[in-house]
Design a protein around this nucleic acid. Sequence first.
DNA 1: GCCAACGTTGGC
DNA 2: GCCAACGTTGGC
Length: 165
Amino acid sequence: MNVWLFKTEPSTFGLDDLRAAPGATTSWDGVRNYQARNFLRDRIALGDRGILYHSSCAVPAAVALLEVVRAGYPETPSLPSAPSRRPASAPEPERPVWYAVDVHLLLPFPHPVTRPAMREHPDLIHSRLLQRGNRLSVLPLSAKEAQAILDLADVDPAAIRDATK
DNA sequence: GCCAACGTTGGC
DNA sequence: GCCAACGTTGGC
């Protein structure tokens, strides 16, 4: 089970929007970076966890624990034509370019974990998340990094394993 | 508002 | 294929 960081600008879509969404679940789409796209398409699995991170706002911070409830799927599904009906001369259908996953809000953090707080933690000080110029909107977290963020959020460590109820 | 970092574009 | 210019992201 892997843990992923999902970055979002709360002025566009944040924790409050996810709370208000039907089933506290949303499609994580709109990612337009190939490296992040590859994570969505190839690496993020059903049941993986996510940490929701607010960026480009007054207090950038990790704010919630998520669960992936649907693995990667094309943003705009192309209607697959039955192979037998496709003339041999027709081009192969193109592979979709952009992908989404669905995430569900498991647990809003008791309090946000800010960047200064993360810098105090030995397991986060070298995290890609804290590096300047990091522009990846979806990125993998090591088990240590994920645990450190949950520790700083005062979330029960068991939450990351047992949250599915 | 500033600046660093990175991705994309386009001329050659 | 190189690389400069430009646009975007994102922290501060």
